[in-house]
Design a protein around this nucleic acid. Structure first.
Length: 571
RNA sequence: CGGGGCGUAGCGCAGCCUGGUUAGCGCGCCUGCCUUGGGAGCAGGAGGUCGUAGGUUCGAAUCCUACCGCCCCGACCA
């Protein structure tokens, strides 16, 4: 592509609306332009990057035996009524009516449509397994779109759905996708981890998230520095502590102490001359409209997703401090499990404490020598606290690290939830009607591009990994008035193009400085400069965007050098 | 939805508090000269319903009201 003919509007200044680096660089580099909140146009360069990613996704999906289809973005409300999600999905689902006042929505995901296809077209176990995927634009009316392509309302997604005869077969489909996902993100040149995740509202037994490691990630994950363990903190399992060995009969009785004005754990601990980990913190949550008390050690934090899962409720949120008295007539800051009337969920660590200090449910008063199990009995005991770097790896006992991550892929085992709701069945070898066992597998294609930039950039701009770079090499012609230079640049451009490489030829009538700056900004991995060095000695310079390494070589060697370097970088 | 902020040339902003010529500046754009290895210089030029509607006033970018849009924080979320 000749730069002079390419719509590539780069800017020197950063648009005010962009907060994160990927958004800033995508705008400055002329990759995208915003149409309205959370909705973007992909300009040529942006679309090229998208296409690089989709091509990799397509190849690996096909290799894994999936078949590409394209479903409608407009979906009838009836289908969503049937699955039960018309009510459940909430305002994120953009609904509208046609001229006949019939309900429709824009597809935020396609379980309903694909299940409808399956029940109409798949009838026999002989047809299974089937895995269908599409690469398509989704719309989710996010409460707050932000960060450019990272969390748009409209975005490009690859979603795949597997249909199997039974759990064992579904497991195999899931495994195949997991392997395909590893290949896809490896081929994209990304530093990522697959983590066990909470399966969220889509439902299903378990799921893995694929997270690109980058500081601006919206999720926190925990990784082991010694082994390959990685998990979302929402799910990261904490090994049970060693049980308390004290003989309950020898422990002292409870004792009430005055702690006026001491609402915070640290103050209570200081006042009583103990440390935070001798105190038990009682936090109130609303679990599906019912108030529950969650108990963790004073130096720990409650992980509300874990709490939600252990309670088996749909939703858990903290009870706002100002509502506490209204709802349960208890004094904030002096809460405790002893003689408490609420459902109590205790962290396993709390139960391992010999004695602890808790609030007395009376203003300005705490209780000492509280023995979990003797002085109060929780309805649930389990792992409900947030994991920390002080914890050890649940697999190998190694040291853990907390990292931010961007979720670029999520694979779910769905089971028979949708096939049952929508009566999608096949006949097995004995003639029995059976529900399909399903799986679903998503990749945020546009988000992959943003995540790649979050992970790979410097103060000068983007540093694209070769496999997803819109161009693999850029040729800078710095001697537009010099026939020899123009001829050499032109010839190199045509030759590389003929060999099938993606090459940008900067033939603009611009000063060298602008060309260098633009080349850096848009992140092309290899840059060839043909200018006065060439005029003098017939040499050109090749610079690697990532390392900054520059090599000077005879013009004649250039093609071979570039070929070698590009091919090497394409796994 | 709650809290905060912003809307003035393609982009980034000043002017508004304290109303009063022709609404400015930087970048970008056009023309010419000059320059050509890290976003040059000089000269000339084009480009504005000051988000929209209403109000106050002799007079509104500026004050008031409503609405619209966008951004940030929170809640929420594959």
């Amino acid at each position: 592509m000749r730069y002079s003919q390419l719509l590539l509007p780069t800017t020197k200044e950063t648009p005010a609306e962009a907060e994160v680096v990927s958004h800033q660089l995508l705008l400055r580099g002329g990759f995208i332009r915003k149409l309205t909140s959370g909705v973007y146009t992909y300009l040529p360069l942006g679309f090229m990057a998208i296409q690089k990613v989709t091509e990799i996704v397509r190849e690996e999906m096909n290799r894994a035996g999936a078949q590409e289809i394209l479903m409608p973005m407009v979906q009838p409300g009836d289908l969503w009524q049937e699955s039960g999600r018309w009510k459940k999905y909430g305002p994120e689902l953009l609904r509208f009516q046609d001229r006949h006042s019939r309900d429709y929505c824009l597809g935020p995901t396609h379980e309903e449509v694909i299940t409808d296809i399956a029940r109409k077209e798949l009838h026999s176990y002989r047809q299974l397994p089937v895995n269908l995927y599409q690469i398509q634009t989704k719309f989710r009316d996010e409460i707050r779109p932000r960060f450019g392509l990272m969390r748009g309302r409209e975005f490009i997604m690859k979603d795949a759905y597997s249909f199997d005869a039974d759990d064992a077969a579904s497991e195999l489909s899931y495994e195949r996708m997991r392997e395909a996902y590893y290949k896809i993100f490896e081929r994209c040149g990304l530093d990522f981890r697959a983590v066990e995740a909470d399966s969220g509202s889509i439902g299903g037994s378990f799921s893995h998230e694929f997270m690109v490691l980058a500081k601006t990630g919206e999720d926190t994950l925990v990784t082991c520095t010694a082994c390959s363990y990685a998990a979302n903190v929402e799910k990261a399992a904490i090994a049970p502590p060693e049980a308390c060995c004290a003989d309950i009969d020898t422990l002292p009785a409870m004792e009430t102490v005055d702690t006026p004005g001491m609402k915070k754990v640290e103050r209570v601990a200081d006042f009583l001359g103990v440390s935070s980990c001798d105190v038990v913190k009682t936090m109130l949550y609303i679990a599906d409209d019912q108030v529950v008390a969650a108990l963790v050690r004073g130096d720990r934090e409650v992980q509300s997703v874990k709490l939600k899962n252990i309670l088996g409720v749909a939703d858990v949120e903290p009870l706002p401090e100002e509502d506490v008295w209204k709802r349960v007539q208890l004094p904030v800051g002096y809460l405790g499990p002893v003689k408490m009337d609420l459902t109590i969920v205790a962290d396993q660590e709390v139960m391992a404490m010999a004695t602890c200090i808790t609030g007395a449910n009376v203003k300005g008063t705490h209780v000492k020598n509280v023995v979990p199990g003797r002085d109060f009995t929780p309805a649930h005991v389990g792992d409900i606290r947030q994991i920390t770097e002080e914890d050890s790896c649940p697999v190998c006992r190694g040291t853990l690290q907390l990292t931010e991550g961007i979720e670029v892929g999520h694979i779910f085992k769905l089971g028979t939830g949708y096939s049952e709701a929508m009566e999608a069945t096949y006949q097995d070898s004995e003639g029995n009607e059976k529900h399909f066992v399903m799986g679903c597998y998503g990749i945020g294609v546009s988000r992959v591009v943003a995540a790649a930039i979050e992970q790979n950039h410097d103060e000068n701009g983007i540093i694209f990994p070769m496999p997803i770079a819109p161009f693999q090499v850029v040729i800078l012609n710095l001697g537009l008035k010099d026939d020899a230079i123009c001829e050499a640049a032109e010839k190199l451009y045509l030759e590389l193009q003929a060999k099938g490489y993606d090459v940008l030829y900067d033939d603009r009538d611009e000063r060298p400085g602008s060309k260098f700056k633009d080349a850096d900004l848009i992140g092309i991995p290899l840059r060839v400069t043909i200018g006065k060095t060439y005029a003098k000695s017939g040499d050109v310079e090749i610079r690697h965007r990532q390392t900054g390494e520059t090599v000077t070589m005879a013009y004649a060697e250039t093609v071979a050098y570039l070929e070698k370097n590009i091919d090497q970088a394409l796994v």
